[in-house]
């Protein structure tokens, strides 16, 4: 069976959930080979998790290079050449997209970016925030896919996890140099793009202080907190939590919209959510057109009551 290269996203010995999604998706195309690029000793802590998710091989490239993303690109490019894989899968993130794009240039491969599904025929794109579904195929060998987090349900599978050390080839062009790095140490809440439940607030929340209502409900559900562009532009909540065309695209199991009218801008970032709940004072708000259950009312009354019910059920 053909190999499928999966780039492992890891930080401090922890594998990101998106990598398990890639390993799951890769099995539809062939046999997953995990590719670990990182400082000496990184692979040791990762192999167990990779094996448990079906990695037949684990390629390990250790490097102390401060070249920005170039080691990842070079290692993948040399593996593409030596192993002729059926495909390369990389998770959608700022780094992942860049590695994928540069790899496609280096190996002259089809680049299928931000897909929500992969098959031997190609990839599925969810375009314009889910308003369109498009199927695309690659016209080259070893296509490079970036897969949107949350698109695939992780399934465990036993893999042999045979380890193989690979060299980091010398870079061909100049690279930017990493001077320092401060990874985000996530708060207690799940990451917006990985969360299975999201509670978002809009202009109707009214102020930064009052966002505590949104946060309270989110915490009772173990959810991530999101915000509409209107709320972010009004300074109620930081931009990194913005859901919508100019923010994050999310697709959780449950999306609760509080005081969000549902402009196209916002819907483009969340309308593929499995279940949508909306609370808004305005019965004509467009968010109700896509909500599975809507309450016309004051979010400051409805949200705390819901929070209370959720907490009651938990105990």
């Amino acid at each position: 069976m053909a190999e499928v290269l999966v780039l492992v996203d890891h930080l401090d010995g922890e594998i990101k959930k998106s990598t398990f999604e890639l390993l799951t998706a890769a099995r539809a195309l062939g046999e997953p080979s995990a590719v670990v690029v990182g400082p000496a000793g990184s692979a040791g802590k990762l192999s167990e998790g990779l094996k448990a998710h079906g990695a037949a091989k684990i390629y390990i490239a250790e490097t102390d290079s401060s070249d920005f993303l170039t080691p990842q690109v070079s290692v993948l490019a040399s593996l593409v050449e030596s192993k002729d894989p059926a495909a390369v899968l990389i998770g959608v993130s700022a780094d992942g997209k860049e590695i994928a794009g540069r790899l496609a240039i280096k190996t002259n491969s089809a680049l299928l970016g931000d897909v929500v599904g992969v098959s031997p025929e190609g990839g599925t794109h969810s375009v314009f925030g889910g308003a369109f579904i498009a199927e695309a195929k690659a016209n080259t060998g070893h296509p490079v896919f970036t897969l949107r987090p949350g698109s695939v349900e992780v399934e465990q599978a036993d893999g042999a996890g045979a380890e193989e050390t690979v060299e980091v080839p010398a870079a061909s062009g100049r690279s930017a140099t990493v001077q320092s790095r401060e990874p985000v140490t996530g708060g207690d809440r799940p990451e917006l793009t990985e969360a299975s439940v999201i509670v978002s607030g809009g202009r109707g929340v009214g102020s930064a202080e009052q966002f505590s209502v949104v946060e309270g409900l989110a915490d009772s559900l173990g959810a991530a907190v999101g915000a509409s562009r209107a709320a972010v532009d009004s300074g109620f909540y930081p931009h990194q939590f913005q859901v919508g065309q100019t923010g994050k695209t999310v697709s959780p199991q449950l999306y609760i919209a509080l005081g969000i009218s549902g402009a196209i801008q916002h819907r483009a970032g969340m309308q593929t959510s499995k279940t949508i709940i909306a609370v808004n004072k305005d019965p004509e708000a467009p968010i109700f057109e896509i909500a599975d259950f809507g309450v016309v009312g004051d979010l400051f009354k409805v949200a705390p009551q819901l929070q209370e019910e959720v907490t009651k059920r938990k105990n």
Binding site: A110, A131, F132, A134, A136, P143
Partner: peptide, 10 residues
Amino acid sequence: LTTVTSSQPK
């Protein structure tokens, strides 16, 4: 290098 083979409004 890539071809969109089908598209449809959801």
